Simulated scan of single mutants.
Amino acid sequence: MANSSFLLSAKGIFIAAFLSLNTTAYAQKTTDIAPISEKVLSSVLEKNRTYYTQGKVADYIPELGKMDATAIAFSVVTKDGKIYNTGDTGKKFTMQSISKIIALMIAVNEKGEAGVFDKMGYFGTDQPFNHFSNLETTGKPLNPMMNAGAIYTTSLISGDGEKPFLKILDMVRYITKNQALDYNKSVFESEKATGHRNRGMFYLMKNNGLISGNEEQLDNYFKQCSIELTAEDLAKIGYFFANQCVRFDGDSTYKNAELARLVQSQMLIAGMYEFSGEYARTVGLPSKSGVGGGITVSVPGKMGIGVFSPALDQHGNSSAGYHMILDLVKQYNLSLF
């Protein structure tokens, strides 16, 4: 018994010493890294600026093709709500698919998670964002991050006419604390005029009994994609979901840990389209891109990141934006993995 007590005591001393050494090493490691600042962000931005030459501005929606390929911005909202910006921070662009996470939040708040996912999957995909996937076979969208699932999600939001869209717009304004945000009517009209593939998805789901309304519901989807904002607004959105749906200034009106977990899980597995698996390996954070050139990133329990550069890679994600995020994640060891 005495020997056992001695061994347990020695083991305890060893563990305490090990933890002490590792804590000291970790503290040393973190103090060696400069805290996030505009200078740090500027350095990362300049290092990755030229990646825009490896991408192409989306032109399948004619209005998007008018974007300046050289524009670039980088924003971070830290845990304490401080905002750091660099680059073309005043440059506005449309949310596009990033609006899908806001629509999902509202639909789940109104219908409950089971009510939303009863006729839609939680699946990831190896297909582009506008792929029909298994609509023509099972009739169910794969997930709420692809266009088909997003159109379905928006159709679930209650209200006639454009009321569902206005709910999405109001929520974006709330999260960003920016009441001046609105949608770009020219982009909306351009999306509506050329959105035949989305229209096909809408009617296929209507044929399968998922959607019962008319094309006003599809217009709401086109409008939500046309909401204009900045990289700073995206960082605030990333912060919101990273911190249990609490706003960057501490406003906890919509605080909901379960809902934040749901949205982030979908961002992680499908937020970067068919690149999501590789992105989870390299960046390892819940993120959502849009073909307007923006990406919003949630670092769970910590910060929000927003980037903008309209030249897109072959997956429809911002080329320079991805590399800025990747560099910051590596520098501060932000990956979940």
Results as ranks from 00 to 15, higher is better:
F6E: 15
F6W: 10
S9H: 12
S9R: 15
A10Y: 09
A10Q: 08
F14Y: 13
I15L: 13
I15G: 10
A16D: 14
A16C: 12
A17T: 14
A17Q: 12
F18H: 11
F18M: 15
L19S: 15
S20Q: 14
L21H: 07
L21T: 13
N22K: 13
T24V: 14
Y26H: 14
Q28M: 03
Q28N: 09
K29W: 00
K29H: 01
T30I: 13
T30V: 13
T31Q: 10
D32R: 08
D32S: 12
D32N: 04
S37F: 01
K39H: 09
K39W: 03
V40E: 03
L45G: 03
E46A: 08
E46K: 12
K47I: 00
N48M: 01
R49L: 15
Y51N: 03
Y51F: 10
Y52E: 05
Y52P: 02
Y52V: 06
Y52D: 06
T53I: 08
Q54P: 00
G55C: 04
G55T: 04
K56I: 06
V57I: 06
A58K: 02
D59I: 06
I61W: 06
P62Q: 08
E63C: 05
E63D: 14
L64V: 12
L64A: 07
L64P: 10
M67P: 03
M67E: 14
D68H: 05
A69Q: 11
T70P: 01
T70K: 08
T70C: 00
A71D: 13
I72M: 14
I72L: 04
A73M: 07
F74P: 06
F74K: 00
S75E: 10
V77Y: 00
V77P: 01
V77E: 00
K79M: 04
D80E: 07
D80F: 03
K82P: 05
I83G: 04
Y84T: 02
Y84N: 02
Y84L: 04
G87S: 00
D88P: 08
T89F: 04
G90N: 15
K91G: 05
K91A: 09
F93P: 11
F93S: 12
F93N: 12
M95P: 04
M95I: 11
Q96F: 08
I98E: 05
S99F: 07
K100Y: 03
K100N: 12
I101A: 02
I102M: 01
A103R: 05
L104G: 04
M105D: 15
I106G: 01
I106Q: 02
A107G: 11
N109S: 11
E110H: 01
E110T: 09
E110G: 08
K111P: 08
G112A: 03
E113M: 05
A114G: 11
G115Y: 06
